[in-house]
Design a protein around this nucleic acid. Structure first.
Lengths: 152, 152
DNA sequence: ATACCTGCAAATGCTTTGCGGATGG
DNA sequence: CCATCCGCAAAGCATTTGCAGGTAT
């Protein structure tokens, strides 16, 4: 796990003028510790503070911008106000329950030849696919529904 | 075309306590006139003003909220700051060029049995699927790339 | 008549920016 | 040493809200 922080860090520094700072290391560390979670900038800020290594909010936003451009993380808008970030770990997609706000991750929903088809039919070279599916989760499917948006 | 405005209006008023006002009629009119476009609240605001039937921005946001909940429109975040709205006309998806910001609409990208599969495998009842594909369009695929985000 | 709408102005909340001081390479 | 980065405070923007007056039904 500690290894991976360095993997990412090294990769970032490799070709560019990107400096390795305690703040950036800490942010990546937190992203790895919470892999599979969707975290807002504010949540990362709180976690860092709780671990006695506070990182200022503007620094977090600036870092997220860099990491997103590098493809290390992806930024999601689930409709709850603040953007949510997560480590990019393979192409997966999100089922979003409109009743309780739960996010379920799923893979393997897209046809395998999608990228080639788009290139052939549209001349479009795709880098990343994001499928969001809105609906009701197992628990809410038969419950009376409340209104959206609802964060968790 | 004028017919369709009334279709939507009537449909909205049918089961609910929703009033038919000039502002709501105007907004729907503009959405229909610009079908296939992606418009921000601000753009709708400008268009209404230009047509001598101004609608206040808060009213536009409030109306968009209602129309979205009713499924008349869908709200998109393409990363350019403001949300973009469009009439819901069949399930289509968006190719987003990271170089020039162009949005290309495409249909028929998802497996036909997707909804049934999700219900069977996850117990998830899906209402709406939105696939966003980031990459480079035909014109930009060989151009030197600039940085993102760029709106148009 | 009355519940619902609108417009205005102000508030809100996420995100970005300017800047002086700090620091990694 | 110097370009880059950080934290702070303040600004920027899209969106929401409170409220008083207006309007559809």
């Amino acid at each position: 796990m500690e290894l991976e922080v360095n993997d990412i860090i090294d990769n970032l520094a490799e070709h560019n003028e990107l400096r390795i700072t305690d703040q950036r290391r800490k942010i990546i560390e937190l992203l790895i510790e919470n892999r599979g979670q969707h975290m807002s900038a504010e949540e990362i800020h709180h976690l860092a503070k709780k671990k006695e290594q506070p990182v200022a909010l503007p620094t977090i936003y600036r870092t997220m911008g860099i990491l997103e451009k590098k493809g290390v993380i992806s930024k999601n808008d689930f409709g709850g106000g603040a953007a949510k970030y997560e480590l990019s770990l393979g192409n997966h997609h999100h089922l979003i329950c409109e009743n309780c706000g739960k996010i379920i991750e799923v893979s393997g929903l897209l046809p395998a030849d999608l990228e080639q088809r788009l290139l052939a039919e549209q001349g479009f070279q795709s880098k990343e696919q994001r499928l969001k599916i809105y609906g009701y989760c197992r628990e809410c499917i038969n419950k009376p529904k409340k209104s959206w948006p609802g964060t968790q």
